[in-house]
Amino acid sequence: MKLSPLYVQWEQEAQKQGQCMVVENLLTVRFGTLDEQLATIIQPILELPSQEYASLMLHLSNLSREDLLAKFNSNHS
């Protein structure tokens, strides 16, 4: 069964939106609020290679807000 290109595109966008919501929720739970600084690192987090992304999500509870922001400000400036 061949899926239509429009359906495939919709499915990919839905998956990206779901991943974004997961990261937003994890950051909110960890740091209490999702301010502008944290919101700006969501896309860079989503663009990490899958192994790096998984590692970051697993270790998020051990990172301070400052450490997390510094990691992405230095890597993505």
Score class of each variant (00 low, 15 high):
Leu34Ser: 12
Gln51Glu: 12
Pro44Phe: 01
Glu52Asn: 08
Leu60Met: 03
Ser50Gly: 06
Gln37Glu: 13
Glu47Asn: 06
Ser61Arg: 05
Lys71Leu: 10
Leu34Ile: 02
His59Ala: 09
Glu47Leu: 10
Pro44Asp: 04
His59Ser: 09
Leu46Met: 15
Thr40Arg: 15
Met57Pro: 04
Ser55Gly: 06
Leu68Asp: 15
Asn62Tyr: 00
Leu56Ile: 14
Ala70Leu: 07
Ile45Ser: 15
Gln51Asn: 09
Ile41Asp: 08
Pro44Gly: 14
Leu38Gly: 14
Leu58His: 11
Tyr53Ser: 12
Glu47Lys: 06
Ser50Asn: 03
Ser74Arg: 00
Phe72Gln: 11
Glu36Met: 03
Leu56Ser: 04
Ile42Cys: 13
Glu52Pro: 01
Ser61Met: 05
Met57Phe: 03
Thr40Cys: 13
Ala54Thr: 15
Asp67Arg: 06
Thr40His: 15
Glu66Gln: 12
Ile41Ser: 01
Arg65His: 10
Ser55Lys: 08
Tyr53Phe: 13
Gln51Lys: 11
Asn73Arg: 13
Gln43Tyr: 01
Ser74Phe: 00
Thr33Gln: 11
Ser74Cys: 13
Lys71Asp: 04
Leu34Asn: 11
Leu46Asn: 15
Leu69Arg: 05
Ala54Asn: 11
Leu58Lys: 10
Glu47Pro: 01
Asn73Lys: 14
Leu69Val: 07
Ser55Tyr: 12
